[in-house]
């Protein structure tokens, strides 16, 4: 309370200086009436416009999105359990060399986890799984989140990239305190934290032909499915 007192005092001084001057006729009666009329018109028009502005639904615990646990499924080798709608992108590279060098271009904790599985296939496959990120159970921002990518350089160097982080900004509107005062179950602190975000995940799942030996310097970051991690 004490902390906001200086602000209150400054505001009071500001207000006093405005109000003590208002008897000085800055605007004549006619002009003042036009100012008032114009202001009311702007308020009425803005109310009309506001009705047509798209609004995200308010939070509802029932609507909270629950996607599959990509990490758990991948670690247990159960990617087949993940619905194909969560496959964001697939890359396929023919393999001619007996070994594959995997290089991470990012710190693993800052980007998608990487899994490697040996499979009975002829070419190298990389699958990017991505689950939705949804604000308040209604605003889907999944497509705005940049995807991890891969590139095969040379004949056997697979580079994994995580794009630079992006900032997504939204405007959240908190009803005025007089509008929420009589609403059941709304405390003052809840007024500004009544938004939730269901964060989606990304994982990179690499399927390599069985005869290919996988080498990597990022041992801590790469999980070998169905094997103990090599030291």
């Amino acid at each position: 309370m004490i902390a906001i007192l200086p602000i209150v005092i400054i505001v009071l001084i500001l207000l006093f200086s405005i109000f003590l001057n208002y008897r000085v006729k800055i605007l004549s009666g006619q002009k003042a009436q036009w100012l008032l009329f114009g202001y009311f018109i702007i308020l009425v028009v803005s109310f009309g416009i506001y009705l047509f502005i798209p609004k995200g639904a308010p939070p509802s615990s029932e609507e909270q999105y629950k996607g599959p646990d990509l990490y758990l499924n991948a670690m247990e080798g159960n990617v087949s359990n993940i619905d194909s709608k969560y496959v964001e992108r697939t890359w396929e590279f023919p393999m001619e060399e007996p070994e594959l060098n995997v290089e991470l271009d990012y710190i693993i904790s800052d980007g998608p986890p990487v899994f490697v599985e040996e499979a009975d296939i002829d070419s190298l496959e990389v699958i990017l799984y991505k689950t939705p990120t949804i604000i308040n159970g209604g605003i889907d921002i999944t497509d705005r989140i940049p995807n991890a990518s891969v590139q095969l350089t040379g004949s056997n160097k697979l580079q994994l990239y995580n794009p630079n982080p992006i900032e997504i900004e939204y405007s959240g509107y908190v009803p005025e305190f007089t509008l929420t005062q009589f609403k059941q179950g709304v405390s003052n602190s809840l007024r500004i934290t009544g938004t939730f975000i269901s964060f989606g995940d990304q994982i990179l799942y690499i399927r390599v032909p069985q005869h290919i030996e996988v080498n990597t310097d990022s041992l801590e970051g790469i999980q070998f499915v169905g094997k103990e991690n090599e030291d």
Binding site: L15, I145, Y170, G172, E176, I192
Partner: peptide, 30 residues
Amino acid sequence: TGGGGGGSGNFHVMINYYSGDVVIIFTILW
């Protein structure tokens, strides 16, 4: 009037909150 958000490695969602509370407080002072 405040903000909050969160994110993972490649994105950060920031929600800035707006409210007409200050207008009401100014009106009360007025």
